[in-house]
Amino acid sequence: MLKFLDHLEEWLVASLIGAATLIIFLSVLHRYASGLPIPVVQDWLLTINMSWTQELCIYMFIWMAKFGAAYGVRTGIHVGVDVFINSLLEKTRAKFVVIGLSGGALFTAIVGTLGFTFVWEVGMRYAVATAFGFNWPDLTSGPVSPDLEWPVWIFYLAIPLGSYLMCFRFLQVIRKFIRTGRLPQTDTSHVDGLADDFNFGDTPAAPAGIQGGKP
């Protein structure tokens, strides 16, 4: 079950960044092709409406950012100023690490709740009431996005969903840290598949009387 959630999260953020790139690529191609005075083709291209691409790209990236931030907790990519706490004794340091992580859990929990209230007010309440035939007072439909004309509350859902997931990830990391004393880390300095012997078309010169560093 948790594995499934992990995969879903990874799959979602990777597809969003890939798809957004593709969409902008296509819209730029379309814009250029439509400007070329080729008979028939130009008229056909002009009938295709690509005005919604920027908006969709922005919304896809916001979704990627919110769920990616949760994934980032799991991979330990959110950086903090750890100079001060690293100079402390191991036991005190551990306390600060837990405080820091709890701060994350607290913030994301609050934001998730605020976000849900907001989404509820700007259209979800109306959508739920209409869907299930509830007769609630003061029902007003929320705004729609200008270009796609989809209800904005659906887009805004990224805040509560992403924040609650992020909160859950912080709690997971806290639990693991207390149990094992380890924090997740991302190694950004690693490049796969580099050939060991990089060939400059020369034979390695002998060290010219200098000490070599550690390999």
Partner: peptide, 24 residues
């Protein structure tokens, strides 16, 4: 061709991870 299509999802994921951190 230093990279295959199989490597692409991993590149997308690590880029999304880094981007999300900055966007956050």
């Amino acid at each position: 061709r230093d990279m295959t299509l199989k490597d692409v999802p991993r590149t997308l994921l690590s880029s999304a991870n880094m981007s999300s951190m900055i966007l956050y």
